[in-house]
Structure formats: structure tokens, C-alpha cells
Design a protein around this nucleic acid. Sequence first.
DNA 1: AGGCTACCTAGA
DNA 2: CTAGGTAGCC
Length: 439
Amino acid sequence: MSTTIAFCKIPLSLSQLSLAAVLQCGQSFRWSIFPLAASEGQEEAAQLGQPSHEYRLCLRDRVICLRQSQEALLWNAVFPNPPTSTEETARRDAETIEWINDYFQLDIDLQELYRTWSERDPIFNGLQERFSGIRILRQDPWENLISFICSSNNNISRISKMVKSLCANYSPFLLALLPPSGSGEPEPYHPFPPPSVLAASEVATKLRTLGFGYRADFIQKTAKMLVERNFEPSSSKLPSAFYVGQEPAEVWLAGLRNEQTAVAREELTKLMGVGRKVADCVLLMSLDKREVVPVDTHVHQIAHKHYGVKMPSAKGGKIPMTPKLYEEVATKLADVWGDYAGWAHSVLFTSDLKSFADYGTEKQTPVNGTGLLTPEDTPEPTPTTKRKRGGAKVEVKVETTDSSQQIVFATAIVEETYDDGSSTLTLAERVKRRRRTKT
DNA sequence: AGGCTACCTAGA
DNA sequence: CTAGGTAGCC
């Protein structure tokens, strides 16, 4: 059970792919991450470009294990049953390699894209050193869709827990694996459940109890909508043997890869819990629509600070993302970055993630310590990466209080000071509705 | 037709 | 109070 398995190598530079960034930046939520045994030689190992982590993902019939060194991607695949022949072993290996190439889109030269973006955009140029190797994964559309339905109004940590909970509760156990360190409990692996399983009406109520909140109904309804769709016979035969074992609903979804972006988006947004943002994430991350830029508040901030997109006056501190504003931001960024705008967006987005605040600095080195830059080399912080140091909140007045004892309207001047010494003064018209607790 | 709001939950 | 939003209602 604890036999040491050798890893196979695919030559690959860190500038083409940074597993540490790509697998944790909120594209896929299902990878398990293990630090490799912290021994005394670890620091030197890191400097030698040896792997520091192992990443694992359960597919239909196997668990893929990945590590990364300075010059190679290291992989191995674990099956519940050992291969019966050398031919069988070879066939399995070939499939895994094909999957890796497809999933990481390794035929696309990321360095060349970085060069192009840097020429077109000085802002990108400033970030490219610190955030290299960030590319878009080519994910399974069904899993991608459900994961991003979970993502609404949510954080990466909880989304990951929810997605793993879906697997644990709705798909059969495949196998268990000890952490790579050898010590600790074996971890069970389940593949992602197919549409037919999540379409059952009881699923909604059970997902509620599992802590999915209002997304429980979205997931079940979307699954049901897809399963009950009337599929064209033509859509059930796709060229690749890649889709064998998939349900018609999954094949249909994947078939949107062959449609125009607008058409595919139209179809996606018909599904429950899928708005523009979620649809665009799916278009970009699993349906080959590389030009699509999903827009959220982070992306809007970036677009405002660096690319001259308007910032509506803050009513109540929150800027609602209207369809019009969404379109403005998306078009602007697509225009700046070109064909692969969605890919460029993910570099900027990752650089803006709080969990990556120290990525590429001394505090937290990227995998294997390459591309290491001192904090002085880091670009000017953008307003979104600027950390708030102090905020004086000056309540000016409270205009009315109605009979139900809700504060309905309040005006305040808010001063915020940032790490770099700059500060902003905003007039915030904050509408507070403080609901009285039921008694 | 845009502009609200409620919606689940875990964790600062 | 927020976290990579969306449906439903006016």
C-alpha cells in the first residue's frame, strides 16, 4: 500500500507553468495539496529547484499526482487495480500524458503570450516577472460549471470544501492514498459526480444540510435542466475518445466548445444560478473561449486604476456590477490584451488575490524559489493590493430613523490611509437597514 | 429596462 | 462585515 512510486518527467520550465499558482488561484477547486516532508535539507532542496509540494486530483478512474521541479513536471497516476500487462501499463500512461497535455494546454507557448501582452500593456509588463507561469486550465465543463455555481458570493476556501463535499457524497469511492510524507491518515478520493446523480430532487434538500446555502437549489436545478434536455443525436458523437463514459448532458456541454462565444454564453445563462460572470468563467476555463474576460469587483478595480474604466460613485460603499459596467470592463480589457485576453486577465487576477499578496517575494517564494525577487523589485502597489493601514470613519449625520427603528439612511465621511502613505476621502452614503431581531 | 434585495455560511 | 453573484421583483 505504501510502495514508493517513481514519477515520470515532462520537461517544462517554470515560466511555462507554475503549478503552485495555477492550481490554487481559483480556477479548479478540487486539487489536494501536500507539502513535501520538511526535512533539514529542504531549504537547499528548494534552492536546487526540487519539488516542494505534491498536488493530487481524482479523475474518473485514477488519481493524478503531480510535482514540479525547476525543469520538469513530474507525474504519476494511481489506480485502484494494478495493470494486468505491460501493454495495459503503456496504455494508461499514454492516457495520463494526453490528459496532462490537454488539461494544462501545454501546446500553447505561455512565454510568447507574456511577451505579446508586455508589448501591448506596460502594466502587465510590470507584473510579468513576479507572476510567471500562470495559464488557463482546460477543465471539464460540467465540473467547471457546478464549481462556479458554488462560487457566487463565496470564497475559495469554502468553494473547495463544497466541491469536495459534492464528490464525497455523490460519487463512489475510488481509492485512498497516504500523504506523500508517508505519515498521517489515508485520504479518500472520489471523482466528480455526473449530472444524473445531482439532478434528483432530494439533492437540493440534502445539499442544504451539507452547508451549500442557496446554491443547493441552483446545482440541483441546473443538473435537472441539463439531464432533461432533448439532445440532438449529432451532439452525442464527438470526435475524441476523450468523452467516453460521459453522460449526454456532459457531452452536450463540451459541445459548446464548437459554438460561437455568444451562442455558448446564451445557452449557459439559461441554467439556474448561471449569470454573466459564472458563464464567462466557464467559457474561459473549459469551453476554449480564450478572449473572454470574467468581470468581478477585483477586475473592475484593476480596470479602473490602470485602464481608465469609470468608477461609479459608491452608493452604500458597494458598487453594483451592472450589465452595462460589466460589458465596459470586459470590452476594454479584451481590447488591451487581444485574442488571449482571458488568459492575461487570470495573471492580473491572481496577482490581485490576497493569498498571493506575498507571492514572488521573500516572504513566500514561488515553487522552488525561482523567479525570486526582492520586495523592492515589486511593482507599485495598485489600490487593490494596497493594504489599508488606518481608516478614520467619521459619522457625520444620521438623517432619519423610521418608526420600525431601522436606521434607513446615514451619511458618513470615510478616510482611508494605505501602506504607501496615500489616502482617500470619500463621501459614503450608506444605507443601513438594521433588521430588528425577531422576538 | 435598469435598479434594488434577499439569499446560505464560515470566518475575520 | 465580506467572500470572484444571481434570480426575482418592482
